[in-house]
Amino acid sequence: MTDRPLPLALRALDALGQRATYVVDSLGRFGTFLGQALATILTPPFKFWAFIDRIHYIGYRSLLIIVLTGGFTGMVLGLQVYLTLVRFGSEAYLGPAVALSLIRELGPVLAALMVTGRAGSALTAEIGIMRITEQIDALTVMALNPLRYLVAPSILAGLVTFPLMTAIFDVVGIFGGYLVGVELLGLSQGTYFGEMQTFVDMQDIMTGFWKSLSFGVVVTWVCTYKGFNVGHGAEGVAKATTDAVVLSSVLILVWDYFMGSVLP
């Protein structure tokens, strides 16, 4: 914060340095936030009813959109993969192709993206509004830890709901593919499900499971963090909500790549 203007050459460096400091500082806050939230998960008292409410909020209320998107993803896969496979005369592998793409990649990723759009944004907005209307300060001055009441239940609910929603997405998607492949395009039912059973391993299912589990943490972590550190007024809440959705979506895809290269 010097008042004397810097030489032009140094000004660029100064800007770069400030930017770097800012980025490292926010990353540190972001990490510390999760650490503190995890600490409140591991120490009593546990806010059980807040946790149930969050499962209701993140999970149950997202059921419809999960079923809808899962079904149509499966149907699109069924159609497109069939059209490709039929050229090689290997349409018998439609079942495994649909199931494996859903279970390993599309299920966890698309379910996470959908839930981010529906519940993640609302989570950020809700916590953001609690921040700007001083409800979070009210908790603090009651000598209660707001992380315990707002963040810990959300992260735990993310851990529980994301794998379940991914499983629902997968199953509905597989039946969507069945509708198109078997009912519409005339593949035999036995081929569709039989080949699927031969090709899909428990390992594939576990890969999808670990992915969805980690997405559950990433999404709730980003969304509660953005809500907690909201700017001023309604504009701040709007910006935090957008930021939370964008950052969650990007992190889901980046993290999916890393998980994909680490997991078998």
Binding site: I55, H56, T161, P163, Q197, D201, I205
Partner: peptide
């Protein structure tokens, strides 16, 4: 309200576990 939320959550968990079970028993051969 409490009961309504609980029923909804119970339903959600049940459907989710049914999905997981279908995947792992039917496809994962557990």
């Amino acid at each position: 309200e409490r009961a309504r939320v609980n029923i909804a959550v119970g339903l959600f968990v049940l459907i989710g576990i049914a999905g997981l079970a279908y995947l792992s028993i039917q496809l994962g051969r557990v």
